[in-house]
Amino acid sequence: MPTSTPASSAATQTLSRRELFSGFFKIGLSGFGGVLPLAHRVLVEDLRWLDDAEFTEVLSLGQTLPGPNICNMSVVIGARFQGAWGAVVALAGLLFAPLCIIVMLGLLYARYGQIGPLPHMLNGIAAVGAGLMGGTGVKLAIKLERTAWVWAVAAAAFAGTALFGFHLVGVLLVLAPLSIGMAWYQLARQTKHNSEPEQ
């Protein structure tokens, strides 16, 4: 593992299936109340399989495609390093331990009809979980390019889902074409500008 380089990236390293399994095993086992903050922590900061830009990229894919975000991310990352088997192994690593634990909890609940002090613990865990998600959002936002329309889109996505409670699909249907259109317009203008002969 290239521990000496500050920011590693998917383009410069190879990972075995075993590494993929154990990496996602760690993420699956540690994600209470939302796996995303842990995924960022493990994939970007601890293992350095991805840099921040690549993480955001895979997250964008995972969020836009149907299905659980984190499962989609594990499939895309696994496939990038080890093809179809990499995808299977990463997804299996992610789900194996949590699945075993939740089945045991489910059986206990079915037998005893209660889950002991879990609800009280959950209050504290949920408050921390919310902070972890917020902190991850801020960390990613710090890396966002400093362009007015880009921040306007981020603000609109935040406000649409969080403040106005619009359905996510609606927010995506409105914002994605708008935002991609802006990016395309800017690229087109830039290309035109660059191809113009200098005076």
């Binding site: 939302g34 998600m133 996505a157 990016a183």
Partner: peptide, 25 residues
């Protein structure tokens, strides 16, 4: 172009979930 367009939405949504989780938790 697609990625550049989707990135701010993705980050806005993560911040939004943080806010919603805070409100409900």
């Amino acid at each position: 172009v697609i990625l550049r367009g989707l990135t701010p939405i993705t980050i806005g949504l993560v911040l939004g979930s943080g806010y919603l989780l805070t409100r409900s938790a």
